[in-house]
Simulated scan of single mutants.
Amino acid sequence: MVNAQAATAEAEPAAPQPITRSSTNGKVLQVGPLKPSLARTLSTDYDALLLPVDESRPAFLATHGDSVNAVVTSGRTGVDAALMADLPNLGAIVHFGVGYDTTDVEVATQKGVGVSNTPDVLTDCVADTAIGLLIDTLRGFSAADRFVRAGRWPREGNVPLTRKVSGSRVGIIGLGRIGTAIADRLAGFGCDIAYHNRREIPGSRYRYATSPADLAASVDILVIAASGGKGTQQLVDRSVLKALGPEGFLINVARGSVVDETALVELLGSGGLAGAGLDVFADEPNVPAELLDLDNVVLLPHVGSGTTATRDAMEALTLQNLDEFIATGTLTTAVVQPKAVRS
Rank of each mutant, 00 (worst) to 15 (best):
A9L: 14
G176K: 12
G167T: 02
V121Q: 10
T310I: 10
I251H: 00
R311G: 05
V159H: 07
T262E: 14
D45N: 15
P202E: 09
N197H: 06
V105N: 08
D279E: 06
V2H: 15
G171S: 04
A313Q: 13
K27Y: 05
N296R: 13
L87F: 09
A82I: 12
G114Q: 00
D283N: 14
V336S: 09
E200L: 06
D214F: 00
G157L: 01
P58W: 13
I173N: 04
R342P: 12
R152E: 15
D101A: 08
F147S: 04
L133S: 06
T102M: 10
M314N: 09
L161I: 13
Q110K: 15
A316P: 04
K230P: 10
G140F: 05
L235A: 08
V303P: 03
R311C: 03
T44C: 10
A194E: 14
D145K: 07
S343E: 15
D220M: 01
A82M: 10
R40V: 10
D192S: 14
N158C: 10
L122M: 12
R205M: 12
D47R: 01
L87H: 07
R311H: 01
D45T: 11
G167P: 04
E106R: 12
P301Q: 07
V303L: 09
V335Y: 08
N158M: 13
E261F: 05
G231T: 09
R185F: 03
P18V: 02
T137C: 06
R21D: 02
V126E: 09
D295Q: 10
T308N: 10
N69G: 13
T210C: 07
S257H: 00
N25W: 12
L90T: 08
P88V: 05
A62T: 10
D54N: 11
G306K: 04
V287W: 01
D54A: 03
